[in-house]
Nucleic acid binder design. Sequence first.
RNA 1: GGCCCGGUAGUCUAGUCUGGCUUAGGACGCCGCCCUCUCAAGGCGGAGAUCACGGGUUCGAAUCCCGUCCGGGCUACCA
Length: 474
Amino acid sequence: MTVRTRIAPAPSGYIHVGNARTALYSWLFARQQGGVFVLRVEDTDAKRATQEGFEGALEDLRWLGLSWDEGPGPGGEFGPYRQSERFEGYRAATLSLMESGHAYRCYCTADEVAARRARKGGAQGYDGHCRKLSELERSELQRSGRPSAVRFKVPDGRTISFDDVVRGRVETGTEQIGDFVIQRSDGSPTYLLAAGLDDLLMNITHIIRGEDLIPATPRQILLREAMGATDVPVFAHLPLLVDERGRPLSKRWGDVAVRSYRERGFLSQAMVNYLALLGWSYDDRTNIFSLEELVDRFSLERVGRNPAAFDENKLEWLNLHYIKQTEPGELARELMPICAAAGIDAEVTVLEAVAPLLVERLRRLDEAPPMVRFLFQEVAPDEKALKVLAGQGDYLKAVLEALENLPEWTAQAIEDRLRELASERALKPKQAFQPIRAAVTGTLVSPPLFESLEILGRGRTLQRINSLTAGQVG
RNA sequence: GGCCCGGUAGUCUAGUCUGGCUUAGGACGCCGCCCUCUCAAGGCGGAGAUCACGGGUUCGAAUCCCGUCCGGGCUACCA
């Protein structure tokens, strides 16, 4: 039987890193097993689902490189893949569940159930009120036009167990599960029904999801049984992701969205590599994995059981690694929108020229704008630069002269000439070059000086130095 | 409260099933030195873990058993 896994995001916003990791593991497993990866959108909660959320989620998945074989876009024989388009099926399933005696209408309102729970001293679950209704009471309530939800009839005295690939055997007694709602009084299906039915109908063989869904698993198994399934899928519950303070990441949103990392200049390879390592390891030393290597080496058995804290430091380190491997042309293209966001109207060819200088000093792409700004805009020396420039008028004039007559404008020629000048004046390299850097880039931190000057061009370099010797620095 | 899951350095983890190979290994971060036109990168070195705690089993336990504590999840007509 071919392996089929799925990722089932709720489109209430961009994908956050927890979902991204679940998606990655599901994708890796499917690819490795030569299986099928399904994307299903769980938008049964109309209040939370939005079209932007839907499109944003797909875009984030694509960016990560997690292509789906079935789902919105490619389609597939088990569609539609948006739960909002499958309501008829859920309704029919609910109906047949009622006919077979596995479910019943419940006329209690949420408030009534809560009130009865409170009266019983904070009891949980459903007390079975409507399960015990007589035929007469039932038809009267039905005739009264009172809205009704549908609850699943949880059998008594059974133990539901399953073997979780990452956690081992998990058992739950049915006395701990109250009759749960499968269809809301407005006719929409709940997660339990929708996800359970879809997993069944879409032949999902391996359900990989967060450990917050462990308690939902016995209910899903019961539901499958009632719907006539004879097999149980393999379950793998991933440990939760927490932030640096140990708080669950799922409680936070925007700032932990994949999209926001992307906007801050993280490469998708770094994100994928990092996510893979968050909760899984190959051995005791390997850190760098391409997607292909992950497909080859990933295994659910080696997923850890303890919650993992998202550490941006390590993500940045991986990012640096992948930035170093990025071709100049590609890096330049990646940098264009980031420069634009920083108010720099950059030229891609110029960025391509500086890319080799940038590549070893960027942990995030958004660190680039301050380093390249001087190439595209006139710059006024910042406070620290002014300090270095103080009293350098005479020296800068000498620099100007030296550079004016250079036969060729290359980094090598510039360096040779400036070093010559420095030794003539008995200046240490740092003393000699920092003022020039300050004059040309307006700052004390920039890409390597000589290469930077070459890219800036002779005209602009001389003009910037000249404008400073003209007065301000004395 | 009940049920469930987890607990190796600041962080991710290896080792736990099949006790000795571990003076607990690697990586990020941190500190120092080297390199150096700045910032990085790179090289070398270092600090950092009573393996949550307490008992027990054993010649020997991070690894097996029991108890405790701490953290988290679920307990919805959210997913």
